[in-house]
């Protein structure tokens, strides 16, 4: 017994070092289960406060770019207004058959909550975005984050006033997407190298793909609203091991300078989930 104590006393520094290493590594590799824990909640609120301060200054430098973006988005939305469609002749009538305008609420699926991006990184292998809107303002885990130009990511952690989203530039990120002109479902992932490009894999070779084609989110996802731009095809690569293409996409969102985002809540998700649960039980 005495020898044991002597051993501990002699190697106390080494043991302490090893203990801290194991602690750090276990935190790192168990991150998925761990990130819900109190530590990250506290960290969010503390570092969030720094980010808010910094962001107040930083915003001024990109005001022009941001205005341009919001103006483009506004123009896009204005072009969809019903009042802007006029038939040349009174016998023609514009019919909206996809939704009822007067009782829209009961059919609403996606609700957009505006949020300010206060923290952002692109230089790691797993990049996160901090948003100034938390559980008190109706944010929950697994909601989509959309920017004025396109998809940004999805929420992975929420504290009372801040939330953290995993951006498209995260190695665990996967978004189901398809080519806008039709066909070809695939999964968007990031290889951790260049923050300007992501990869869309598993596109069958029967589909004709050209440079510059738009890739959008699919309607199969219960997180992302359909038709949101993920990116534009920058390079078409043939996957030699399978008969598919793997497309290099230029992200629609400029992750270096994005400032504003919308958190998208799927109101019908609970119903969908309980239905799926039932199917799995049977």
């Amino acid at each position: 017994m005495r020898n044991v104590f002597l051993f501990i006393a002699r190697f106390s520094n080494l043991l302490f070092f090893l203990f801290l290493q194991v602690l750090a590594l276990s935190m790192l590799f168990r991150y998925n289960k761990f990130h819900q824990a109190a530590y990250m909640n506290v960290a969010n609120e503390v570092t969030g406060r720094f980010y808010v301060r910094y962001n107040k200054i930083e915003t001024y430098f990109s005001l022009q770019k941001e205005n341009e973006r919001l103006r483009m988005q506004n123009a896009d939305l204005l072009n969809k207004l019903k009042a802007d469609f006029a038939a040349p002749d009174s016998s023609m009538q514009l019919v909206t058959d996809t939704f009822r305008v007067d009782s829209l609420e009961q059919y609403r699926k996606f609700l957009y909550l505006p949020a300010k991006i206060i923290g952002n990184a692109v230089d790691g292998q797993n990049n996160f975005i901090t948003l100034h809107r938390g559980s008190k303002q109706g944010v929950d885990v697994n909601m989509a984050v959309i920017g004025p130009e396109g998809v940004i990511g999805k929420i992975v952690n929420v504290s009372s006033n801040m939330s953290v989203a995993m951006s498209l530039l995260h190695r665990k990120n996967s978004v189901v997407a398809l080519l806008k002109k039709g066909g070809g479902f695939g999964e968007v992932t990031w290889d951790g190298k260049d923050p300007r490009f992501v990869t869309l894999s598993n596109i069958p070779r029967t589909i004709k793909v050209a440079k510059g084609d738009t890739v959008v989110t699919s309607s199969y996802s219960d997180i992302f609203p359909p038709g949101k731009v993920v990116g534009y095809v920058a390079e078409v690569r043939e996957d030699k091991s399978s008969s598919t293409y793997s497309l290099k996409l230029k992200t629609a969102t400029d992750f270096y300078s994005v400032q504003h985002a919308y958190i998208v809540k799927n109101i019908q998700k609970a119903e969908m989930d309980s239905l799926m649960q039932k199917v799995k039980k049977d």
């Binding site: 750090a24 590594l25 935190m27 761990f34 570092t47 720094f50």
Partner: peptide, 19 residues
């Protein structure tokens, strides 16, 4: 790590050089 949201990554490296 609190800022970069990677609990343990920089901590492990810093512990190593400090040791």
């Amino acid at each position: 790590d609190m800022f970069t949201k990677t609990p343990g990554l920089h901590a492990a490296a810093c512990t190593l050089i400090a040791y």
